[in-house]
């Protein structure tokens, strides 16, 4: 393994709170390493900042395995950075070159108000889920699991949509700040499963209405969401959602 040092110049969005002005601040890390993850680079920088008596950069993170969906940042203008199908926590410095300048900013969308630095409030996603992102069953009293046969390819398609980690990259990348991919992924998961059929119509209407209420924009088929999705969820979900919606309201 090579352990050669890299120098990385960073321009990071710093903003103390939602009502304070924010700006890009320059930092240089001289002892980065290609095996570091991008978040480890920020950890490294934060350690140096705190040792100098400065306040560290705040960012959300948790599992660092690309599955919890906590991390959220624009890296060089791209949600989660340049590597396809990769959340920021799994992006490694080998994707950058020695001497590169990297710009780091928060998700920007009306429905995701900023909390501090790179941290935003994504409660709007939970509200969309609460509006209908479930099968209305209580605990207990079900038939044997194998009594509901599901064709393998249908189950696989449902899974492809269910893989969403709720990070919000789709919103951040969309010129309209639309949450269509997020919302459609859940709707499409259930549309492909018999368990989801009973509430099919009610669900799509409730979730789409909630999405609008939260202040997300409409989808105008840019496809940026699909390009940045760390789970590579297909934009066909949005087509499915529209079909479901039309069927529900007609």
């Amino acid at each position: 393994m090579s352990t050669e040092k890299m120098t990385i110049h960073l321009k990071v969005w710093r903003q103390k709170g939602p009502n304070e002005p924010g700006k890009l601040v320059d930092y240089t890390v001289n002892d980065a390493n290609e095996h570091m993850s991008f978040l480890e680079l920020l950890d490294w920088l934060n350690e140096a900042l705190m040792k100098k008596g400065e306040e560290p950069i705040e960012f959300d993170h948790d599992c660092r395995e690309g599955i919890c969906g906590s991390c959220n940042m624009m890296i060089n203008g791209m949600a989660h950075g340049p590597q396809r199908g990769t959340a920021a926590c799994q992006l490694h410095m080998r994707q950058f070159k020695d001497g590169d300048t990297v710009v780091v900013e928060p998700w920007r969308a009306t429905a995701f108000p900023l909390i501090k630095d790179l941290v935003v409030d994504r409660a709007a996603f939970d509200n969309i889920m609460a509006a209908g992102g479930y099968v209305s069953v209580n605990t207990g009293g079900y038939v044997d699991a194998n009594a509901i046969p599901i064709p393998k390819d249908e189950a696989e398609t449902a899974f492809d949509y269910a893989a969403c980690i709720g990070c919000g990259a789709c919103v951040a990348a969309c010129p309209n700040s639309s949450a269509s991919l997020f919302t459609a992924a859940k709707i499409s998961q259930y549309a492909h499963l018999p368990q989801g059929h009973a509430e099919r119509k009610k669900r799509v209407v409730a979730m789409v209405d909630q999405m609008e209420k939260e202040g997300f924009g409409d989808c105008s088929n840019h496809g940026e969401c699909e390009a940045v999705c760390p789970k590579e969820i297909s934009i066909t979900a949005i087509a499915e959602m529209r079909r479901e919606y039309i069927k529900a309201v007609l």
């Binding site: 099968v135 079900y142 699991a145 499963l193 989801g196």
Partner: peptide, 8 residues
């Protein structure tokens, strides 16, 4: 239970 909820 999980199958009833639509876990794929």
């Amino acid at each position: 239970q999980c199958v009833a909820q639509g876990v794929p």
